[in-house]
Design a protein around this nucleic acid. Structure first.
Lengths: 319, 319
DNA sequence: TTGAAAGCGATACCAC
DNA sequence: GTGGTATCGCTTTCAA
């Protein structure tokens, strides 16, 4: 744009970046600003980052659009906090890509940090690729730790443990664990199931169920034959579907069947009886943002640390 | 990377882009591929697009994380379809940015297309800025059309009309319309309210309510004094909160109060009585993707067209 | 079939 | 104070 405003490109750059090292006369500044405004000039991020050798992009892969207010509040907070730290938050839709393909695509953008929310599992090689491509921080939030990355491990097994322990405490030992039939949730559902199995006094039956009323009704229809006195559903949504179907079958909750979900979704509080659940303590968005920032500034200090998130049962009326 | 694999950078480019115009010997190809693999080489998107003069980025601004399976299915479909057409889908979190700020930030990335889902209202100037920055298609999905952009107008007013008309048909004329207290939803809630008001035989009272159990309970507590026989809530989530609170107050649904929501969320079917709702006919993700692709290839043909989405009431048990 | 070199837009060093 | 200019990594035209 520049020269058409009467000055050189260098001068434009100085003015628009408020360069301190160099003094520009006020009339010139004004001229440049006005020209930029008039032309609707916007700097070219690609050129800038090519020159600079790095970007300020924080990449958030999203394969499934997140569901639930807990998750979306977290995401909003995170984005807001990162922008305040002058990062550009880019969500990259990675649905249907394999891990390797996805990582290549991310790396092309040369993000300074990647926060993987766990839908795609990264290998040590993947992390290395990202780092070679300029990522100073790779943070994973998921069920398992990843070599080379800072991991915030959401201990899904602990969710299962808490749920089953809660039921056993309340005198229920024959527990049906609802496992989603939908693909892509295994990373969460398998450890949750395993956690439940590991609890002393719990006799666990795995119950596949899809996220639909029909599937829930079918499961409820054969419930009496299963000889169970409690259900732990994959999450509150599955729990709600099941609980409703059980009630439609004439079973009383919690008298005949205790039902517990997970993830503490708001909707769990809207049903009657109110749904007991297991809550996972997420870090706040601001906390994670400052972790990212720290990792970007001092990569050596933060790499390879593993933090564990706690889980706790929340007792309401359904158990 | 290249020269370290024994060939020139040009050759690398040819091989990795499968250039047809030029024939490269098979041994060379293999050498290049192996070197790339070994070094974990990933091309630099910024350099590429700088050289090419354009990107394949389709930018999806997201300010609020979308809620509900209808919306998220749509988004997943859209991303998947766009990637099949070889676009890079980038969601840009724009929460807390003004329209002008957001547009500048988007324009810096030089997207070839922008699909604004309606949380931020674009001005004609904004659209012009994006186009000058290389956007060949600007598509808005929202309550209002935008000059210069291809608009998919979701007629929010029609949602209000359908809801109120449905209630009037069923003999309810004194309608409370729940309006969210949360910020950022005005673009949807105001026309929905206006639409309801415009229906003959409907006497409408606006009822501010926040998305919390407390707020719903407070509203329910003063319900009998309002002299209303029906409620149209902003969407199914607000409807569920309100319906539950009304029932806790001892009011019967639909006998004492008919309740209707909007957006046809799955959870609406889990409550008893099942929630009546108004459904907005969204285009499929694949449809929108091909619209984008067409607009990118032939911008002149598509600009400024306005398509209207239909809305229809779905009767269940709560009305 | 492969290599050399120009150039995309922004920046920062160095002269003037 | 301001204007040239080399540079980032990649693609593509032209020569060899």
């Amino acid at each position: 744009m520049a020269r058409l405003a009467g000055v050189s490109r260098a001068t434009v750059s100085y003015v628009l970046n408020n360069a301190e090292a160099v003094r520009i006369s006020e009339p010139t500044r004004r001229k440049v600003r006005e020209a930029a405004e008039e032309l609707g000039y916007v700097p070219h991020a690609a050129a800038r980052s090519l020159r600079a050798g790095h970007t300020r992009i924080v990449l958030l892969p999203t394969s499934h659009v997140p569901v639930g207010p807990l998750y979306s509040t977290f995401l909003n907070e995170l984005q807001w906090a990162l922008r305040r730290l002058d990062y550009t938050v880019v969500q990259y839709g990675s649905l249907g890509l394999s891990g390797d393909e996805a990582v290549r695509a991310w790396a092309e953008l040369r993000p300074v940090a990647v926060i993987s929310l766990g839908e795609i599992t990264l290998s040590a090689r993947n992390v290395a690729t990202l780092k070679r491509a300029g990522a100073r921080a790779v943070i994973t939030m998921g069920p398992v730790a990843v070599p080379g990355a800072h991991a915030l491990v959401m201990d899904q097994q602990e969710v299962g443990v808490r749920a089953a322990a809660h039921l056993v405490e309340r005198g229920r030992g024959r527990i049906g664990v609802v496992v989603p039939e939908e693909e892509g949730l295994e990373l969460f559902s398998v450890p949750r199931l395993a956690g439940a199995r590991s609890v002393a006094g719990a006799e666990v039956t795995a119950l596949p169920m899809a996220y639909s009323e029909e599937s829930a009704a079918a499961l409820a229809a054969r419930w009496r034959g299963l000889g169970l006195d409690a259900a732990f559903a994959y999450n509150d949504e599955y729990a709600m579907l099941l609980m409703r179907a059980l009630q439609d079958e004439g079973l009383r909750v919690p008298e005949d069947v205790a039902v517990i979900g997970a993830d503490d979704l708001l909707i769990g509080r809207l049903l009657r009886p109110r749904l007991s659940t297991v809550r996972l303590e997420m870090p706040t968005g601001a906390h994670l943002a400052s972790l990212v920032d720290h990792a970007v500034r001092e990569p050596s200090e933060v790499t390879e640390r593993h933090d564990l998130m706690a889980a706790a049962a929340v007792h309401r009326e359904s158990t």
